[in-house]
């Protein structure tokens, strides 16, 4: 693992400033600029989640827009004790799943639960720089593991939040995460061995 990659700061969408719950309250109070701060904080992460789930730039863009639109429309139903990030990720994740189901229904396209065995996920991660290799390895994961890893990447080790977004028990989230990491490790180490 390169030192540069290991030491690079984690991108955290929550920056200094008012808390998300305060921004929600301000938006409900008529200050629409507060919502734009929420958009600034989370648009990238929401897009990232949608993109990792759908593998399509246009659809991910639509899902991100749809998620914020739905959140804005139903902001009054947002519980102040909840986390805005969990809420918006859950909306985006469900919208992504809806699109995946629609895709499957109308085009008989297989859901991306598995990487293409012919391409060989381990082969895909070869000849790429470290970050790209990691991305390719994540892309090669089955969908359920990929989503957990993506949320883990976005939110840190907050299993409870990931469970909240996916609507899964926390134990399942931990299991998925463990298996996802195992698979990632295998793919990445195989790539290293082949390279050396």
């Amino acid at each position: 693992m390169s030192a540069a990659l290991a030491e690079a700061p984690r991108i955290d969408p929550v920056t200094a400033g008012p808390a998300d719950s305060e921004l929600v309250a301000m938006t409900l109070g008529g200050n629409s600029e507060a919502f734009s701060t929420l958009v600034e904080r989370y648009d990238r992460a929401v897009y990232h989640l949608a993109y990792r789930t759908l593998h399509d730039v246009e659809e991910a863009r639509d899902v991100a827009q749809e998620a914020f639109f739905k959140a804005f429309r139903s902001l009054r139903t947002f519980k102040p004790e909840a986390r805005f990030s969990t809420w918006i990720f859950a909306i985006a994740y469900h919208a992504s799943c809806d699109r995946l189901n629609r895709r499957k229904r109308y085009s008989n396209e297989e859901l991306p639960d598995r990487a293409d065995p012919a391409a060989g996920p381990e082969g895909q991660v070869l000849a790429l720089d470290e970050a790209s290799r990691l991305r390719a390895a994540i892309e090669a994961l089955p969908e359920k593991y990929r989503t957990v890893i993506t949320l883990y990447h976005l939110q840190g080790k907050q299993y409870e939040e990931i469970a909240g977004v996916l609507g899964l028990p926390m134990g399942t989230v931990k299991t998925h995460l463990f298996r996802a990491k195992e698979q990632l490790r295998k793919m990445l180490s195989a790539a290293e061995v082949t390279e050396s």
């Binding site: 990238r44 990232h48 993109y51 970050a131 990491k181 990445l188 290293e192």
Partner: peptide, 30 residues
Amino acid sequence: MNNYDDDALDRALFALPLEEPPAGLRAAIL
């Protein structure tokens, strides 16, 4: 064994930059 122990993999994941959203996404949302 490889270099990707649990901590190294965590660090790599957290250091992985997010994909850049398409231009105009924020404007479209707003």
